[in-house]
Design a protein around this nucleic acid. Structure first.
Length: 91
DNA sequence: TAGTTGACCGGAA
DNA sequence: ATTCCGGCCAACT
């Protein structure tokens, strides 16, 4: 099974950013799912840390939510995040 | 190299 | 259903 990552990230953070960037609109994934998709099941915390350092609007980090269905934080504004999710139909 | 931090997860009370 | 506790992983200082 080949990985869905196109880049050659040197750090886990870069890998997370790239993967989240490729998530389709209206699709929501939990940190644990993303971590698993990267081949690191259980590294949900590392995914959160990676996204926390992500300041790039190219990365739809708003599509990544917690397993509870909630969302930790957002570097571009929480209100905007919720608004986007509703607009995409993910919420 | 070791220690601390953080947008988490799952189980138990 | 909600709140508390410990455990997991990667990055930074």
């Amino acid at each position: 099974m080949k990985k869905l990552i196109l880049k050659n990230p040197k750090t886990f953070t870069e890998a997370v950013h790239d993967f989240v960037r490729g998530i389709s609109a209206g699709k929501t994934m939990t940190y644990g799912e993303v971590a698993k998709a990267l081949g690191k099941p259980g590294a949900a915390r590392a995914v959160g840390t990676a996204l926390s350092k992500n300041w790039d609007p190219q990365v739809p980090c708003h599509r990544v939510i917690r397993s509870d269905g909630g969302m930790g934080g957002y570097n571009r504004g929480m209100s905007n995040k919720i608004k986007i999710l509703k607009k995409e139909g993910a919420l």
